[in-house]
Amino acid sequence: DLSGKLIIKAQLGEDIRRIPIHNEDITYDELVLMMQRVFRGKLLSNDEVTIKYKDEDGDLITIFDSSDLSFAIQCSRILKLTLFVNG
């Protein structure tokens, strides 16, 4: 049953990962930690990372904090994230 699940599709460069999320109350910090685990070796804990999501118009919107993240989650059951490393 995928109805209650949130799917995160995260892209870093050419690498795209699909991550099912069971807890929608994820904070921004938890998201960043999850991305560091998912992209281990490509995304380091001291990297400056910018996370953006695609909205319904196809625009890339920056996620700065947990309220941005929860808004993005409300918009779509499949959250398409693009990561930019400013390392």
Rank of each mutant, 00 (worst) to 15 (best):
residue 82 T to K: 14
residue 3 S to Y: 09
residue 78 I to Q: 13
residue 71 F to E: 10
residue 68 D to K: 04
residue 3 S to E: 12
residue 34 M to N: 09
residue 66 S to Q: 10
residue 19 I to P: 00
residue 14 E to Y: 11
residue 86 N to S: 11
residue 6 L to M: 14
residue 5 K to P: 12
residue 9 K to V: 15
residue 66 S to C: 06
residue 6 L to D: 01
residue 16 I to Q: 10
residue 45 S to L: 10
residue 76 S to R: 12
residue 86 N to H: 10
residue 18 R to D: 15
residue 8 I to R: 00
residue 35 M to A: 05
residue 50 T to K: 08
residue 25 D to S: 10
residue 41 G to K: 05
residue 11 Q to A: 04
residue 59 D to P: 05
residue 82 T to S: 12
residue 15 D to S: 10
residue 53 Y to S: 03
residue 43 L to A: 02
residue 62 T to M: 02
residue 36 Q to P: 04
residue 28 Y to Q: 00
residue 35 M to W: 01
residue 87 G to S: 12
residue 62 T to W: 04
residue 57 D to G: 15
residue 69 L to F: 04
residue 35 M to K: 01
residue 80 K to E: 15
residue 15 D to P: 00
residue 39 F to T: 01
residue 17 R to A: 13
residue 76 S to H: 08
residue 81 L to Q: 02
residue 51 I to Q: 00
residue 6 L to I: 12
residue 23 N to F: 03
residue 29 D to K: 10
residue 70 S to R: 10
residue 21 I to C: 06
residue 6 L to G: 10
residue 74 Q to G: 06
residue 51 I to G: 02
residue 76 S to T: 06
residue 13 G to R: 04
residue 58 G to V: 01
residue 15 D to F: 14
residue 68 D to T: 14
residue 70 S to N: 11
residue 33 L to A: 08
residue 52 K to R: 13
residue 80 K to D: 15
residue 27 T to Q: 07
residue 66 S to I: 03
residue 81 L to F: 07
residue 39 F to P: 01
residue 52 K to D: 02
residue 58 G to M: 04
residue 29 D to S: 09
residue 75 C to D: 06
residue 24 E to D: 08
residue 51 I to P: 00
residue 16 I to K: 13
residue 55 D to Q: 14
residue 37 R to H: 12
residue 15 D to W: 11
residue 18 R to W: 15
residue 27 T to G: 07
residue 81 L to K: 02
residue 85 V to P: 08
residue 9 K to C: 15
residue 1 D to W: 02
residue 35 M to S: 02
residue 32 V to G: 05
residue 33 L to W: 06
residue 17 R to P: 00
residue 12 L to F: 10
residue 2 L to Y: 14
residue 18 R to F: 15
residue 57 D to P: 03
residue 29 D to R: 06
residue 26 I to A: 02
residue 23 N to Y: 05
residue 22 H to W: 09
residue 15 D to M: 13
residue 82 T to L: 07
residue 3 S to G: 06
residue 76 S to W: 05
residue 84 F to R: 05
residue 32 V to S: 04
residue 37 R to Y: 04
residue 8 I to H: 01
residue 14 E to T: 07
